[in-house]
Computed example of a mutant assay.
Amino acid sequence: MKRYFTIIVTFIIAFSGFSQSIFRPALAYNEHFCSEPEIVVYSTFINKFTSSKLRFVRISNILTSTWTSAYCDCELCRDVKTDTADFILPVGDSCTTSMHFYPANKKGLGSVQIKIFDTANASVFVIGEYRASCWGLSSSFMDMNDIKIYPNPSNSSLTVSFGSIEPYTLNVVTADGKLLMKTKVEGLNHKIDISSFAPGLYSIKIESGGKLFFTRFIKI
C-alpha cells in the first residue's frame, strides 16, 4: 500500500505600521511517503524592516500528539524547545527559512505560526504560518478504471464519472498547491466548471471510503 504526505504551508502577512517584510511563497504543496521521519516546509523571508537585528517568536504551535517541530531562521536551526531567538539579516536581504516537523510515524497535522519583527520595534511585524499533514499511514488507491475525467484538455468544464453511487470528496489543486475547490458529491456523474481557471496544469484528488484517486488535467 502506498502512503503519502501532503504538505501544505500558508503564510499570513500581518501588519502594524507599514512593514513590507514578507514570506514567499504564499503556498507550498508536496507529497511524500508517510515513512519519512521529517517533513520540511521552506519559505523565503525578505527583510524590509529598518534594522538588521530581528527576532522570531513562535506564537502558535498546533501539533498532533507525539509530533514535534523545530524552526530554522536566517542564521541557525533551533531545537524543538526553542520558541524565540534573535538573528541578523541585513535590510533588503532575503534568506531561506524552514519549519521541520517530526511526525514520529503517526498520521496527523501540524500548524506553526512564527512572528518576525525588528527587536527595536515589536509593533511592526510579519507572521508566517507553516503547515504539514500526513493523510494516513496505510492509504489505498481506487482502481483507475473506476473513475473517468473528460474532456482533457478542456477550456470550460470537466465531467467526472464515478464507478459507483457513494459519497466522494473532490479537491481541485493548482500546480503550486493552491486549493481551488473542495466539494462533496454523490451520484455517477459530476460536472466541474473550470471556465474561470487560468490556463495551465491542475490536479484532482478524490477521496471515498478511505481510498484515494489522483489525476491531472489541463485547462486551455
Score class of each variant (00 low, 15 high):
Val41Trp: 02
Ser69Thr: 11
Lys115Gly: 00
Val41Thr: 09
Gly110Arg: 01
Asp93Val: 07
Tyr102Cys: 02
Leu180Asn: 00
Ile206His: 04
Lys107Trp: 12
Phe11Ile: 14
Ile147Thr: 04
Val9Glu: 10
Ala132Ile: 00
Asp73His: 00
Pro151Lys: 02
Ser140Tyr: 09
Tyr4Gln: 09
Met144Glu: 13
Pro25Gln: 03
Gly187Ser: 00
Lys178Leu: 10
Val41Gly: 02
Ser52Gly: 10
Ala104Cys: 14
Pro167Thr: 13
Ile220His: 08
Phe117Asp: 07
Phe101Glu: 00
Leu188Lys: 13
Ser16Tyr: 05
Lys184Ile: 15
Leu27Ala: 11
Phe23Met: 00
Asn189Thr: 15
Ser60Arg: 07
Phe15Asp: 11
Leu212Pro: 05
Lys53Met: 13
Thr66Glu: 03
Cys72Thr: 13
Phe101Tyr: 07
Phe217Pro: 03
Gln113Ala: 08
His190Glu: 06
Pro153Arg: 07
Cys95Glu: 02
Glu166Ile: 09
Tyr42Gly: 14
Gly210Asp: 06
Lys107Pro: 10
Gly187Gln: 02
Thr68Leu: 05
Asn121Ser: 13
Ser208Lys: 04
Thr174Leu: 01
Tyr102Ser: 06
Pro199Lys: 05
Gly136Val: 02
Ser161Lys: 10
Arg58Ala: 09
Ile220Gln: 12
Glu36Ser: 13
Lys219Phe: 01
Asn121Tyr: 15
Asn121Leu: 08
Asn152His: 05
Ile218Glu: 03
Val160Thr: 15
Ser195Thr: 14
Thr97Lys: 12
Arg58Gln: 12
Leu179Cys: 05
Val173Thr: 06
Ala14Leu: 14
Phe214Leu: 04
Asn30Tyr: 13
Ile8Arg: 12
Ser65Cys: 09
Val9Cys: 11
Ile194Trp: 01
Leu188Asp: 08
Tyr29Arg: 09
Lys106Gln: 12
Ala120Val: 06
Leu179Asn: 04
Ala198Asn: 13
Glu38Cys: 10
Tyr168Val: 08
Phe117Gly: 02
Ile22Trp: 03
Ile220Ser: 09
Pro199Cys: 04
Leu179Arg: 04
Tyr202His: 05
Ser139Gly: 09
Ile59Trp: 00
Lys107Arg: 10
Ser161Thr: 07
Leu158Ile: 04
Thr50Tyr: 12
Pro167His: 07
Phe15Gln: 10
Phe45Asn: 04
Gly136Gln: 01
Pro103Arg: 04
Ala70Met: 05
Gly108Trp: 11
Lys182Asp: 08
Thr97His: 06
Val40Ile: 10
Ala14His: 11
Val126Pro: 00
Pro90Ser: 01
Met181Val: 14
Lys178Glu: 10
Tyr29Gly: 07
Thr10Ala: 10
Phe141Val: 11
Lys182Asn: 13
Leu180Arg: 02
Ser98Gly: 00
Asn189Gln: 07
Lys184Arg: 14
Glu38Asn: 09
Lys107Gly: 10
Pro199Asn: 04
Arg24Phe: 15
Ser35Pro: 08
Leu170Gln: 09
Leu179Lys: 12
